[in-house]
């Protein structure tokens, strides 16, 4: 149709209707299927305009009973918030410790015994698949009510994610130092700690801080199953039908999460992570970075910028393996550069 257009220019107007492609048909079919499945789900679980309308009265009554919110005393709030934060910090710390060796073993670059890698991968997948709340229910049965169960639940679920992202960073890291260390006769553990860990440390910091952000939110609701934190107070208030108090605690949780969000945005702006816009943390938001990261990195960066690019007359190397680099700096192709490298080298 399109190719014939110039010839028939003077005659009938050129058709503006695109040809029907099989892709468009499939896309339309998928959209119809999605709508149908959603409607089926509504019908199955009994979600309808009528049921929502019926719930409106109850909602109004509940809100009336909640108003005005009854905030707990400042000391109580501080204690509950502190406990929530500490559960997240303890859990994240534990997870960070456990995930470093796990990540090195799970990475494709691992050179140790063959059977270790599938085992590590399985641990990573399993811990990531089970939600924190499910672990919390389990651990409350094992270790009893209270923050230890919550911290452990947070830790176990975080191990999977931290190890997965760190393993990606390990695989992305320049293999040359590791190879050099192996050529020196270093053992695998030594290669990992001395040659690779320094390289992925910025990535590890970013991942752990990002996970801490998630874990603080998670630990706010852990108390609902009795695993400590501010959720315990919420559960107690609801259980004793003290709706004013429950509303007050929900307000505290909302404020806490908002403040954390503001803090992480401020940190991100300070560390200049925004400059790496477009980089993705495994489809997750940009990680919050350590407050001191920028000042620590600044001298090195400045020095590198100040260094002359390449003295004139220096021949570009042509041998295989040094694609266009000069003066000892390999020219990396953009695709080889991971978001981790760009984030902070």
């Amino acid at each position: 149709m399109v190719s014939a257009a110039p010839v028939r220019r003077a005659a009938a107007p050129v058709s503006a209707r695109p040809p029907v492609s099989s892709r468009a048909v499939v896309a339309a079919a998928l959209l119809v299927a999605a709508v149908a499945v959603t409607w089926l789900a509504f019908w199955w679980i009994g979600l309808s305009a009528a049921s929502l309308a019926a719930g409106l009265d109850d909602t109004a009554r509940l809100l009336a009973r909640m108003w005005p919110p009854d905030l707990p005393g400042a000391a109580d709030v501080a204690r509950m918030v502190a406990e929530t934060l500490l559960i997240a910090v303890a859990g994240t710390g534990l997870a960070a410790l456990a995930s470093v060796p796990l990540a090195f073993v799970a990475a494709r670059t691992h050179r140790g015994p063959r059977w270790l890698r599938p085992v590590a991968r399985t641990v990573v997948v399993l811990t990531r698949a089970v939600p924190t709340l499910a672990f919390a229910i389990l651990f409350v049965r094992i270790f009893g009510l209270g923050p230890p169960a919550g911290a452990l639940a947070v830790a176990v679920h975080s191990v999977g994610m931290i190890a997965k992202l760190l393993a990606d960073a390990v695989e992305e890291a320049d293999p040359a130092p590791a190879e050099a260390a192996r050529a020196c006769g270093a053992g695998e553990a030594q290669v990992a700690v001395s040659a690779v860990l320094p390289r992925v440390l910025p990535a590890l910091t970013a991942i752990v801080l990002y996970r801490l952000d998630i874990n603080i939110r998670a630990s706010a609701v852990l108390g609902v199953v009795g695993a400590g934190g501010i959720g315990v107070a919420l559960q107690t208030a609801l259980g004793s039908l003290n709706y004013h108090r429950a509303a007050g605690i929900i307000c505290v949780i909302v404020v806490l999460v908002l403040l954390l969000e503001l803090l992480s945005v401020a940190l991100r702006r300070r560390t200049g992570a925004g400059r790496a816009a477009g980089t993705r943390l495994a489809a997750a938001p940009e990680p919050a970075a350590p407050p001191g990261a920028r000042s620590a990195a600044a001298p090195g960066r400045a020095a590198r910028r100040a260094r002359p690019r390449c003295p004139p007359g220096v021949p570009r190397t042509t041998s295989a393996g040094t694609d266009g680099g000069c003066c000892g700096r390999p020219a990396r192709s953009p695709s080889r550069r991971s978001s981790w490298c760009r984030w902070r080298r």
Partner: peptide, 11 residues
């Protein structure tokens, strides 16, 4: 063993 690309950890 000395490598063309040095094999140093830049950080």
């Amino acid at each position: 063993f000395v490598f063309q690309q040095f094999g140093l950890v830049g950080r």
